[in-house]
Design a protein around this nucleic acid. Structure first.
Length: 424
RNA sequence: GGAGAAAUGGCAGAGCGGUCGAAUGCGGCAGUCUUGAAAACUGUUGUACCGCAAGGUACCGGGGGUUCGAAUCCCUCUUUCUCCGCCA
C-alpha cells in the first residue's frame, strides 16, 4: 500500500497518476488525509494522558514506599478519571486506525508515468515484437491439446478423473519436456546470479497481505479452512515474504531469488476456449524471479529482467512480443508491468507467458521490508518479480509451432535436458 | 495426537509488581594507543508514532485481563524444545 506521508506530500500527483487506472481517488485520498490528521490529534491527547498516568503511578509508588498510604490513596482516586478518558481515547484511536488501514488497502499502486492510459489490453503499448512468425502448412495446424493427445504427452481427461478440470496429467515425453523446461529456466536464472529457493506451497494470512493478494483477491486462491492456509497462486508470495519484517543493509542489494513451484489458481468465472488445453489451468508450473532492490535502481533492474526473459524466449526460438500494460490492465500492486506473449501458431493467437513488474515500495510497505541507508535512516525497499517463465503456454507454443509431418521438434537448448530431440 | 518445559534487544543471557527500554557478555560502530594490525582501554549501539525542538508515548512471541502501576500475576492463541504415540 501507499505510505500515508507520501500521499500527503504528493496528493495531486497521486490523484493524477491514479486516473491512469481510470480511478478517481479524490474522495479516498481526502478521507485518508483527514483521518491521519485525526489520528495525530488523538494520539497527542492520548500520549499526554498516558504521560500523566505514568507520573501519578510513579508518585503513588513513592508515597507507599514512604509509608504515606493516605496520600497515595487520594492520588489513586485521580487516576480513575484519567483511566476512563484514556480508554475512550484508545478505542477512538483504534477505530481511526482501522478505518485508515481499510482505506489504504483500497488504494492501488500509482502507475509509473510511462504507463499508457487505457482501459483494456487493447490499449497496451507494444514494445517489442519478434517478427519471424511461424506459419504452418495447412495439414500441420493441430492445436496443442490434439498434439498432446496424439503423442500421449498430456492427459486432460485423466486429470478430470483424479481431481477436476484444469489439473492435467503429464506423461512420458510430455513430463520429461516439462521437467526439461523447469531445469532450463532454473539454470538460466542461476547463470544470471539468482539464488534458488524451494519455498512452501501454502502460506498464511500475513503472507497473503504482504504481497497484496489479500484482502480482496481471496477468491483467486485455494483456501484450506482447517488450517487457515492458502495455496500459493505464484512463488512470488512465499519468496517475497521471506523479507517481511526485515531490515536490510545497503550492501545486501540486489537480492535475487528464483523459485520453481506449482501455482494454484481457482480462476472462477473463466470459461470457453480460453480454458481449452493448457491455456488456463488451476494448477500449473512456473519459475519465478524475484528481486529486492534499492529504490534508485529498481527501474534499471526491471529492464534487466525484461532482457533476461527475452533471452529465454530467444533461446527457445519462439515468436513473442512484449507489451507495457496500460493503466486499466495494470495489476493492483504494480507500478509498471511488461507482459510477454508467445505466438501460438495453431491457435493463431498470443498467449501471455510472463508478467514482469516493479512494485516500487507498495509491497515493501505492507511487508515492512526496509533497508538502512548510509545515514542510518530506514527506508522502504523496492520489490520486483517476473515469470521466467510460466510453463504451460510455453509448452503449448513449443508443441504447436514445432509440429511437422514427422513429429514435434524439441528446441535445441532443451535437448541436453530431455535426452531426445523429436517427439513422434 | 498425548504429557511436560520455555519464548526478553543482532546473538547469548539476567530480570523481588514500581528505581526496567530492560543488568551482563559477545558482536557491530566510533575513538585512544600502534608504521599497520591484533590486544587493551573509552564511548556508542532496537523499532515505530507524535513534536521545530526539548521531550513524550508504545513495544520483552500475539491478543485479552487483574492493578494506581505488568517483562514480572491471570486467561487465551501461536511457536520452539523434551518425552510418548504415529509416519514418508
Amino acid at each position: 500500500m501507499l505510505q500515508t506521508n507520501f500521499i500527503k506530500e504528493n496528493t495531486a500527483l497521486v490523484i493524477e497518476r491514479l486516473t491512469k487506472r481510470n480511478l478517481d481517488a479524490t474522495p479516498i485520498v481526502e478521507n485518508i488525509i483527514k483521518l491521519d490528521d485525526d489520528r495525530k490529534k488523538t494520539q497527542q491527547e492520548l500520549d499526554n494522558l498516558l504521560a500523566e498516568s505514568n507520573r501519578l503511578a510513579k508518585q503513588i509508588g513513592d508515597l507507599f514506599k514512604e509509608g504515606k498510604a493516605a496520600e497515595a490513596n487520594t492520588l489513586k482516586l485521580q487516576t480513575a478519571e484519567l483511566k476512563e478518558k484514556s480508554t475512550t481515547l484508545k478505542e477512538q484511536q483504534n477505530s481511526i486506525n482501522e478505518e485508515l488501514t481499510q482505506l489504504l488497502y483500497q488504494l492501488p499502486n500509482i502507475p509509473n508515468q510511462l504507463v499508457p492510459n487505457g482501459k483494456t489490453d487493447a490499449d497496451n503499448k507494444l514494445i517489442f515484437e519478434n517478427k519471424k512468425q511461424v506459419s504452418l502448412a495447412e495439414n500441420n495446424k493441430l492445436p496443442h491439446w490434439e498434439l498432446a493427445k496424439n503423442y500421449d504427452l498430456i492427459d486432460f481427461e485423466l486429470g478430470v478423473k483424479i481431481t477436476g478440470a484444469g489439473f492435467p496429467v503429464y506423461k512420458g515425453k510430455g513430463a520429461k519436456l516439462q521437467r526439461a523446461l523447469i531445469n532450463f529456466f532454473l539454470n538460466e536464472a542461476e547463470k544470471n546470479g539468482y539464488q534458488e529457493i524451494i519455498p512452501p506451497l501454502m502460506v498464511n494470512e500475513a503472507s497473503g497481505y504482504g504481497t497484496g493478494q489479500l484482502p480482496d483477491k481471496e477468491g483467486q486462491m485455494y483456501y484450506v479452512t482447517e488450517d487457515d492456509l492458502y495455496l500459493i497462486p505464484t512463488a512470488e508470495v512465499p519468496i517475497t515474504n521471506i523479507y517481511r519484517d526485515v531490515i536490510l543493509k545497503e550492501e545486501d542489494f540486489p537480492i535475487k531469488n528464483v523459485g520453481y513451484t506449482p501455482c494454484f489458481r481457482r480462476e472462477a468465472g473463466s470459461y470457453g476456449k480460453d480454458v481449452r488445453g493448457l491455456n488456463r489451468l488451476h494448477q500449473f508450473d512456473k519459475v519465478e524471479i524475484v528481486q529486492i532492490q534499492h529504490p534508485e535502481k529498481s527501474y534499471e533492474t526491471l529492464e534487466a529482467m525484461v532482457e533476461q526473459i527475452k533471452q529465454l524466449l530467444n533461446q527457445l526460438n519462439l515468436p513473442y512480443r512484449i507489451v507495457r500494460l496500460c493503466g486499466g490492465d495494470l495489476g493492483f500492486t504494480s507500478a509498471m508491468t511488461y507482459d510477454f506473449e508467445v505466438y501460438s501458431a495453431a491457435q493463431e493467437k498470443w498467449l501471455e507467458v510472463s508478467s514482469v513488474s516493479n512494485f516500487e515500495a507498495f509491497q515493501a510497505n505492507r511487508l515492512k521490508c526496509r533497508y538502512k541507508d548510509k545515514n542510518g535512516k530506514t527506508n522502504l525497499v523496492h520489490t520486483l518479480n517476473g515469470s521466467a517463465l510460466a510453463l504451460p503456454r510455453i509448452m503449448a507454443a513449443i508443441l504447436e509451432n514445432n509440429q511437422t509431418e514427422n513429429g514435434i521438434n524439441v528446441p535445441e537448448v532443451l535437448v541436453p535436458f530431455t535426452g531426445f530431440n523429436l517427439i513422434n
